Computed example of a mutant assay.
Amino acid sequence: MLDTHARKYVQPVIGRTADLFLKWKLTANQVTAASFIIGVTAGLWIYFGMPWLAVAVLWLSGYLDAVDGSMARKTKSTAFGTVMDVTFDRLVEISVILGLAFLFPEVMWALLLLSVSIIFSMTVFLTVGAVSEQKGMKSFYYQAGLAERTEGFILFTIMILFPSILLYTTLLFLAVEVFTGVQRMLEAKRILGRAEGGGT
């Protein structure tokens, strides 16, 4: 939701960073890789008791992830760049969940359910994008939802910095992800059904 509605407020800063990186002759894929390398360490910092560092690298990774998209739009995006971007985003999230699960095994069951809910929501997101593209849309269809990446980062930050309420935050995150998955399913039925002439 925030990615969709609040992006316009931070896009000028993101755009200037993208211009700077392009001036330095960096490519969008290189920034994607850097974003991944930085972000995937978050789980390690969580496990080793450095929560503020974990949050810092998580948000830096997220910022670079936004910058690489702007770079791709300013140059020429590639299909493999999209694959890298989506895959690396999920691996960063997995890193955070694993770090929390190993540090707080008593809530591992809730973190496991959270992982399942993320898989559910992302499966709907990616499948709708794929079938929409087959129907002739110009680019990968982006489904907005209650939980987008910024909401996830906010909830991850609370989970990392306030472990005393980790269980409750995880369950909240779980509920938000399930809601988003269902929301996207219903939207997909409406959009794709309309494209097929009202079929199911």
Rank of each mutant, 00 (worst) to 15 (best):
S61D: 10
S61I: 09
S61F: 09
G62W: 09
Y63T: 11
Y63W: 15
L64P: 07
D65N: 11
A66N: 13
V67T: 08
V67M: 02
M71G: 07
M71F: 05
R73Q: 08
T75S: 14
K76E: 15
S77Y: 08
T78P: 08
T78F: 03
F80I: 13
G81M: 11
G81I: 13
G81R: 10
T82R: 11
T82E: 15
D85S: 02
T87R: 10
R90L: 11
L91A: 11
L91W: 13
V92A: 06
E93L: 00
I94S: 12
S95F: 07
S95R: 12
V96Q: 01
V96T: 06
I97N: 01
I97R: 05
L98T: 05
L98W: 10
L98D: 00
L98G: 04
G99C: 04
G99H: 01
G99P: 02
A101T: 10
F102Q: 02
L103G: 03
L103F: 02
F104T: 03
P105L: 06
P105V: 03
V107K: 00
M108V: 11
M108G: 04
M108K: 14
M108L: 14
W109Y: 10
W109M: 11
A110G: 01
A110H: 06
A110Q: 12
L111N: 06
L111P: 04
L112Y: 02
L113R: 05
L114G: 06
L114P: 03
S115F: 15
S115V: 07
S115T: 14
V116R: 03
V116C: 09
V116W: 13
S117Q: 07
I119L: 15
I119R: 02
I119A: 13
I119H: 08
I119C: 06
I119Q: 12
I119Y: 11
S121Y: 02
M122L: 13
V124K: 01
V124W: 00
F125W: 08
F125Y: 15
T127C: 00
V128R: 08
V128H: 04
V128C: 05
G129H: 06
A130P: 00
A130S: 09
V131L: 06
E133M: 13
E133W: 13
Q134L: 14
Q134W: 05
Q134P: 00
Q134G: 02
Q134M: 11
Q134F: 04
K135E: 14
K135H: 08
G136V: 03
M137I: 14
M137P: 00
K138Q: 14
S139N: 15
S139P: 01
S139C: 09
Y142C: 11
Y142F: 15
Q143P: 01
Q143A: 10
A144I: 00
G145I: 03
L146T: 12
L146Q: 05
A147G: 10
T150P: 07
T150K: 07
T150S: 14
F153W: 13
I154L: 15
L155N: 04
L155P: 05
L155F: 14
F156K: 12
T157M: 06
T157C: 06
I158P: 00
I160N: 05
I160Y: 03
I160D: 04
L161F: 09
P163M: 12
P163S: 10
S164P: 00
S164E: 14
I165P: 04
I165H: 09
I165Y: 15
L166A: 13
L167R: 14
T169N: 02
T170W: 01
L171H: 07
L171W: 12
L172W: 05
L172T: 15
L172A: 13
L172Q: 02
F173A: 03
